[in-house]
Amino acid sequence: MTRTDFSDEILMRFADGELDVETSAEVERAMETDDELVARVGLFIETRQAAKTAMKPLLEEPLPAELKSAVERTVAEKASAQSGSAPRVVSFPHRAANDRRISRWAAPIAASVVAVIAGFGGYWLGRGGEATPSHVLPLAALSKPALDEALVTVASGAERQLPGSDQRFRAIATFRDNAQALCREFEVDSADRSTVVSVACLAGAEWRVTFAVAAPGGSDGYAPASSLETLDSYLTAIGAGQPLETAEEAKILGDLRQKREAN
């Protein structure tokens, strides 16, 4: 007896060689007498082939010389750095992470750190002794009540002028770290066009800035990729989960506001 009610997914798995032997045999048997089934399987084989052919020219394009040399340079630098002094390690006051994501993907934070401030009291770490303490992080000058207020009111994706300052606060995302603390990633633009990329986490009822990188001012106001990489390493290190959905974030922020008003 042959089945004819195969789902698209089963037929696709058959076409891709991802179906178990037994079901594959069933599909094959059914195909012997069912033209429509043959056509349905054929569609999956054909689309795979078509996609491959269509994307082939991209593989044959010559690599941009700049890209190739930049990567080669990075490889050479990393290789020589490894043979030289031991890498500097920046530690954050978070417990060691043990989740899968970290064990497989964590990047050493040290390499790309430009300037990191931890907590409002802050300390500076420089790369290769190039710390520039003369350039004070604008965050340090931020009023704490204004920041606290923004952290519980501005939805991710929105921005607002911070009262009594020329700084703009932009909420990027809300997530939980591996200790389940609520954290918010945000950026603060200053009038001098510099941007501070930052993370604050709730410790009890208080927001603590746990990470901040000052990105030199780009004319477009965006933080350059290198500072985002540093952030990315940090997020990996604290086991940052996926950003919360808008509704969930709104609810949590609402609860926080209520709690604050009750106090």
Binding site: D8, M12, M31, D35, V38, A39, R40, V41, G42, L43, F44, I45, E46, T47, R48, Q49, A50, A51
Partner: peptide
Amino acid sequence: ARKSLAETAGITAKTARSHVM
């Protein structure tokens, strides 16, 4: 993705038959 690709790019099952059988 593949069903949509087939539709948009006009990949028909007819042309596939010879490949399959």
